[in-house]
Nucleic acid binder design. Structure first.
Lengths: 206, 206
DNA sequence: ACACAAAGTTGCGTGCACGCAAAAATGCGC
DNA sequence: GCGCATTTTTGCGTGCACGCAACTTTGTGT
């Protein structure tokens, strides 16, 4: 017995495989360039069959990027739950979304450079932000009580964060109107979320 | 000369091809079921090579769904611009997003049934809503003046609309908590957008 | 310890997306 | 009308995602 807190052996093995795959994917992409990594290489490096690789990730980019966004979704949800219950919802949400980025472990800049310099990887990376939506919605619902409202708000928050992340990882677009003041990712996230805050406040029962 | 308002012949031909493709895709999907339509069939029915098909759409689902969401993005942008300038931003945005659905041309219910009953098609259909983001952002920027703010707000609005559309096309999820009061799509959109309205109001210079 | 159910892995086959370069279509200036 | 620059279409080749069914591993009840 004593399944500890991490489920059975089966589940741990699954997690290990997933991590091995994404780690291998990231390493190979950095060594040879993202275009020169075939799915078969990743699978081989992780010691599984190519078919199994596809049981874990449904695209090469997803595997590469997963290493940088692994548990973010869980963290955000947990962070929001950890905020004091009497804190205004807007503040709590902003703090929770920022949580994964304020801890001093900005993902190895080298990997970030790799990702930002490749359109497909950028897209996949930004895409991972949508993973926070469900945990966020659940955590918001715990405060507001309304499932529909919290789903909408979580989607809005996630979308705002996505815009912030996009503006941070994307090279200045041709359009000079879209320039955003340079700054850390945390700053941009804060800026973007501040625009959503009024909607959060309106739903705040506190 | 007189390029009318529709560009040259070249451009019109492109549009015609795109429409022929998506029309063929939808028709074939309804006739034989979405799973039994191969890309080659669609291309053949539209009179182009399979490779050309992929120059227009990057997935089978996208082609099928395009027929139902063709110019929605353009409509929303235009609708927002058409609202009186002194109308509050939130009201104008809500009206604009609802515009494509209030005109009495609800897409042929038959096609909708097809789409809602297939997960991949549902996903693609909901996905098309993100197309409104750019036009919406441009139109909002024309009112607020800030590119960053309007991008964030447009993303939030689009996300809220997405949630509404999802809740409308998805069969009741296993989770009984997520039930939303039945209603027309327009009603649900209105409900969802109302949750975002405070954020729009906060950015409204009017 | 053993056998059986449940869950995970693998190989195979099919259809698909897309880069690339050649060929065809288009439209402009003369 | 005529040839030339640009744009679009097409065929080909490669790598990929995923359903399916056989096989292996893991967990459980006896």
């Amino acid at each position: 017995m004593s399944p500890d807190e991490t489920g059975g052996l089966r589940e741990r093995k699954k997690i290990a495989t997933r991590e091995a795959l994404s780690a291998a994917a990231l390493r190979l992409a950095m060594e040879h360039g993202p275009e020169n990594v075939r799915v078969d290489d990743i699978a081989e490096a992780a010691g599984v069959s190519p078919r199994t690789y596809n049981n874990y990730f449904s695209s090469r980019e997803q595997a590469i990027v997963a290493a940088l966004s692994a548990e973010r979704a869980l963290r955000v949800g947990a962070a929001l739950r950890a905020r004091p219950a009497d804190e205004p919802l807007a503040e709590a949400v902003i703090a929770a979304v920022l949580a994964p980025y304020t801890s001093a472990e900005e993902p190895s800049g080298e990997a970030l450079t790799l990702i930002t310099s490749n359109p497909a990887l950028r897209k996949a990376f930004v895409q991972t932000l949508t993973e926070i939506e469900q945990p966020l919605a659940a955590a918001i619902e715990a405060r507001t009580g309304s499932a529909f409202t919290s789903t909408v708000l979580a989607a809005a928050v996630s979308a705002a964060a996505r815009v912030a992340l996009e503006s941070w990882v994307s090279p200045a677009p041709a359009n000079p109107l879209l320039v955003v003041p340079q700054g850390s990712l945390a700053e941009r996230l804060h800026e973007a979320l501040a625009r959503i805050a009024p909607a959060l406040a309106a739903a705040d029962p506190g």
